[in-house]
Design a protein around this nucleic acid. Structure first.
Lengths: 337, 337
DNA sequence: TGCAGTGCTGTAAAGGTTTACATTTTTTCT
DNA sequence: AGAAAAAATGTAAACCTTTACAGCACTGCA
């Protein structure tokens, strides 16, 4: 149905090699030949068949982004960043959900092995040993970069926000407002971001002579629901904190929502801060004071590192790109009563 | 570096054809041969090279999802639905942003032509004539399905929510509450969803003997910012509506946020409804009364139709799958004062 | 025993490129 | 003008599978 390079060669009276060169290295071909070939190409709307090209070049011209949950809107900005960068390089973006298996029962990671993707951007720090083995078996361990999250054990380049610094900004700000009794509304226990942020908060509190006892940590995950549950714990506390710093904006929103049901309002009764600066934060009521992560930038940087890796540029095994975060002061925080 | 089917054939003492059959049609091979081959396969961790397979089979085993803006979190649930369905069929999901061009300057649609994808799920109803031509040139017009949005001119199968019915539910509910003066906060002027929803609202209002004069329509787009701008218009109205139905949840949130700056609060002073039921709606303050779209379902159905199309099953050119919507009554609406 | 039918397996031809190497043409230099 | 160097082009192999077709070894049947 569709024309092949052979047809174009025949039609323009040159060899397939010349057609190929005209298309991918025009400078290697006489101007005259080039024009001759290009005319036929355009006339017939010829496009190289990328499957054949990829087979020959041993390159898929696409990379895989693996997320813990495709349905989580948090990732969309990161995808946008990845795609921005990749499209400049003519590379496609394949996305997959870490939970979904191929019908064969094999993990999505096997796609790398199948030569479907040239590399992997992993947005899920919860990286099982099995996944690591599979990666090793694929000979692709050196074409992986983690974005946003990263595996605790290390061993891969990673692009991340400066989570500790973010918490320092948050705590400094709250402490500056006069808060002395600050709680932490936590993300998932094993999650590296949660661990990092909690540690950051603790460090920053210590710098102000304050502490973060376990009793002032609300365990949960990053979700709205967990925030709402935390509200329940909050109201039952003997000595209520005057401020809560949350591990995510969704937690903060859930918390504020939950507290309001008990007649406790932010920032009047308690200051609440989020982390992430997701799109709705600025429009929440009260608008959320939060730490802004550059999610687009995370995507762009991760893609950049991966493209380098694919190009064979050497990137240290534990290379870390850390992106700055910033404090967004809005309406959910105030001086303590 | 990595083993090919030839190596496996040699190592297990059979021909490449037999290895291929063992892997893709095991029933065509003796049990003994099968075991013999599989042992070698597993021992060496052999995986077929999908580029070679795809070249030979003339199939990419992947589909492209095209969105107007990858960064818009609205789409994530749809992606999740698409991927769920595709992964069952062993098909990969490629995503692309309609705005981004390949370095060659060609539109992403040319990927179809390049044989990189077997079909297209388009989430962007704003389908230019040029895009349509490019699609026609690729011989892929019959492997396209629209999800969520669809092109006004028709001509492609489409999966969508029952937008009119959604507006009927909304208006019936507001009218039942006693509202007589209802405004519409609009999405982008040319957008098919906006047009459909506005028409739906108008119809439903008429059924209650009410009207929607242009003066009571706030023009905008689907964004939070547009909602906030609408608030400005609202406060300057001579006769203020008692309720506003918005074309999206983000509009509703922006509107409520904007109004609150003028001391106008939902639902006390005005009832505000959204459309979509995005993830944060239930946790907004006030929790948003809205029309729920089954975004995951949209993705699943769209993928299903596309897979049928790819399998060569006949799907009428203008086949439409309409998914039901539902009314979510929450806290942003009340009887008029 | 001969023959048709059945079930496995092997051979080799696609599938559409890219590219190393060989060959031809053009340019440059003396 | 002629040789050497450089540039353009052509030939054919390689990339790794799948699959049509042919061949072979059986089985069952007359």
């Amino acid at each position: 149905m569709s024309l092949s390079i052979k047809d174009i060669a025949r039609l323009s009276g040159v060899s397939t090699a010349t057609v190929s060169r005209t298309l991918s290295a025009p400078e290697k071909v006489t101007r005259q030949t080039r024009e001759q070939v290009m005319q036929v190409v355009e006339e017939h709307g010829y496009r190289v068949n990328s499957m054949a090209r990829n087979l020959r070049r041993q390159r898929a011209d696409s990379v895989l982004a693996l997320v813990p949950d495709l349905g989580n809107p948090f990732f969309s900005a990161i995808f946008a960043g990845i795609q921005d960068r990749l499209s400049q390089a003519g590379v496609d973006l394949l996305v997959a959900d870490n939970r979904s298996l191929h019908p064969s029962g094999r993990s999505v990671l096997s796609q790398l092995r199948d030569a479907r993707a040239d590399g992997l951007i992993c947005l899920d720090g919860g990286f099982s040993d099995e996944a690591r083995r599979e990666l090793a078996a694929s000979g692709m361990e050196n074409r992986v970069v983690f974005a946003c999250e990263w595996p605790m054990a290390g061993g891969f380049p990673s692009v991340r926000s400066d989570n500790r610094e973010g918490m320092r900004l948050a705590i400094d700000y709250l402490a500056g407002l006069g808060h002395r009794c600050i709680a932490y509304c936590a993300g998932p226990a094993g999650n590296v971001l949660n661990i990092e942020r909690r540690a950051g908060a603790q460090e920053a509190l210590a710098a102000h002579g304050l502490t973060l006892p376990d009793s002032r940590v609300f365990e949960g995950d990053f979700s709205l629901q967990a925030g709402e549950k935390a509200a329940q714990v909050f109201v039952e506390m003997a000595e209520r904190p005057t401020a809560v710093i949350c591990a995510s904006d969704q937690l903060a929103m859930g918390l504020i929502h939950g507290l309001s049901k008990h007649g406790i309002h932010a920032p009047r009764d308690v200051s609440v801060m989020g982390f992430d600066d997701i799109i709705t934060s600025a429009y929440f009521l009260p608008a959320l004071t939060t730490i802004r992560q550059n999610r687009l930038g995370l995507g762009v940087e991760a893609a950049t590192v991966l493209l380098d890796l694919i190009d064979g540029k050497s990137v240290p095994r534990d290379h870390v790109v850390t992106l700055p975060v910033s404090l967004q002061i809005r309406a959910s925080t105030a001086v303590p009563r």
